[in-house]
């Protein structure tokens, strides 16, 4: 009987596929958020597996803040080209027109307009009733209580005290007019699980995850990469070439690199296992206040 046994990783894989299929079956118009990062990449691979040999039956959506790393966009375009699913990019048109950026408007305002607002716009424009996100519960304390199927009211708001109980694998997918559900198929995956899966499945990821000599300036202790000429250099700041990599990917001015020599996937994993600092540390936006992620989620951020 011991042969009838799934490893934890296989179990997670099958559970995620169940969730993805459930959404495809029960929602009228679902969409998968594709943020280009490693979690999204795993989620996309699972979606392919869920429906093979049929194509993925819903579109992919990328909310572009216009400040993503260039390598992310190159990777994205290559990735979606031969997917067989529809791909949609959304940029907040008002934000773009007003040239909202993290330097002149501050990270909070910029994130609100180009990320949170842009996401809401994109979901409303598409009339989507369900949106997949790649968030994991182990990322951050407020995520630990997130449901797999997370109900959002018509303002996309999340009410942590009024979530639907979620039992067995019976997900309540009923929603009213203009309400929606955010679905997190990777809820139970850890950072290590994600890397292990990418390694096992030989899935390509954005090269930024691998160490390379990159132009870096140091700001408030964070290593910021000078990805293009838009980054305003402060007085006396000179980019230096430094061997770094990124543990998470987002907008380049807000994403800190770490010193590293890990140039292969196994080296990354080993480095991760040997370091003792948690993953979102590199992301500047979580730093405002201890409960800041919770605040953003209430407003409709993923």
């Amino acid at each position: 009987m011991s042969t009838y046994q799934l490893s934890h990783l296989e179990q997670l894989e099958h559970e995620s596929i169940h969730i993805i299929r459930e959404v495809a079956a029960e929602f009228r118009n679902p969409v998968m958020l594709f943020s280009i990062g490693k979690d999204s990449t795993v989620m996309l691979r699972l979606a392919q597996k869920a429906f093979a040999p049929a194509p993925i039956p819903f579109p992919l959506l990328h909310v572009n803040t216009t400040w993503k790393f260039r390598e992310m966009i190159t990777f994205r375009d290559a990735m979606v080209k031969d997917l067989g699913a529809r791909f949609i990019e959304w940029i907040n048109p008002q934000g773009k027109a007003a040239n909202i950026n993290p330097f002149d408007h501050g990270t909070q305002r910029y994130t609100h307009v180009m990320k949170t607002e842009a996401l809401k716009q994109a979901l409303e424009a598409g009339g989507y009733d369900a949106a997949f996100g790649g968030a994991r519960r182990d990322e951050e304390k407020s995520r630990a209580k997130e449901r797999v199927f997370s109900f959002r009211d018509k303002n996309h708001a999340w009410d942590p005290k009024n979530q639907r109980p979620e039992l067995w694998n019976l997900f309540n997918t009923r929603i009213g007019k203009n309400e929606s559900i955010r679905v997190f198929p990777l809820s139970n995956w850890t950072e290590l699980d994600v890397w292990l899966y990418l390694w096992r499945e030989q899935v390509p990821v954005v090269p930024l995850y691998f160490a390379k000599r990159r132009p870096i300036v140091t700001r408030n202790g964070a290593l910021i990469m000078v990805d293009d000429e838009r980054l305003p250099l402060e007085k006396g700041e000179v980019p230096e070439m430094r061997m770094v990599r990124f543990r998470t990917l987002g907008c380049y001015p807000l994403t800190g690199a770490v010193d590293s020599t890990a140039t292969t996937m196994t080296a990354i994993i080993e480095e991760m296992l040997r370091t003792r600092s948690s993953e979102r540390q590199g992301r500047v936006i979580d730093y405002d206040e201890a409960g800041s992620m919770e605040e953003k989620k209430r407003e409709g951020y993923f």
């Binding site: 046994q5 990783l9 292990l196």
Partner: peptide, 13 residues
């Protein structure tokens, strides 16, 4: 690392 990952991937949940 490879041995670790191999062992890790076979763990029970």
């Amino acid at each position: 690392i490879e041995g670790y990952l191999d062992a890790y991937s076979k763990k029970e949940l």
